[in-house]
Design a protein around this nucleic acid. Structure first.
Lengths: 105, 105
DNA sequence: CCTACTACTTGGTATTGTCAAGTACTATAT
DNA sequence: ATATAGTACTTGACAATACCAAGTAGTAGG
């Protein structure tokens, strides 16, 4: 799958998934992978970035199946950011796909 | 508009526009701008790249309204590339948008 | 001859994804 | 007890692509 298409979109997917409920990194990698192929080394930096930008807050929780998990919780600012990214994505996607569909004819 | 969303998509738009008929650079900048905001300095490097990869052939033609125009013509290999990128885009776009729409509920 | 529009080029920068390797914990089987 | 597999996270070097700004140059109109 074209790597470039994912740029920016992975951030949006992560935001939406964490919006739904708190998640830990490894879980996010799996969730996102169900939608598009993605690498661990891609998701963790996104989480770090979004946390630095105050879109996420984190806390630790022990697990019986392995090492401690770092959970991500979306902040108010994160929700706003998510909403505005969502809007932008649909605007973008619509204008691109409409153009492409028209030009296919 | 989110810069990152455009990554890879601009190449696809350029390929589709040139598929329809031969175009020169400046014209392409205008055409693409109708779909998504874009910079001159972004389109020209794409054209150079696609030409280097033998997806385009070029020829010069004089113009009455300004300097000589460099026209881009799509090659057989370019058409193939365009088709496969189109497929990838729709696969990608569909799985992302479907997920986002479901998660909005 | 000055300005605007057309047309293309180039160089430096920022962002983001990939790959590969490494650390470390738990559970299960040998 | 130890080797393996699965879970969980981190890091660093690298590649691709978009942006901005500036520069070159031709044509047309005031």
């Amino acid at each position: 799958m074209n790597t470039q298409f994912k740029k920016g979109v992975l951030e949006l997917l992560v935001l939406v998934i964490v919006s739904e409920k708190d998640r830990y990194g490894y879980e996010l990698v799996e969730k996102v992978s169900e939608i598009v192929d993605v690498n661990e080394g891609t998701i963790y930096p996104i989480l770090k970035r979004l946390t630095n930008e105050n879109y996420f807050e984190t806390y630790l929780e022990e697990s019986k199946e392995g090492p401690v998990r770092k959970y991500y919780h979306i902040t108010v600012s994160g929700k706003k950011h998510c909403k505005s990214l969502l809007k932008e994505w649909f605007l973008f996607e619509n204008s691109v796909s409409n153009f492409l569909k028209e030009n296919k004819k």
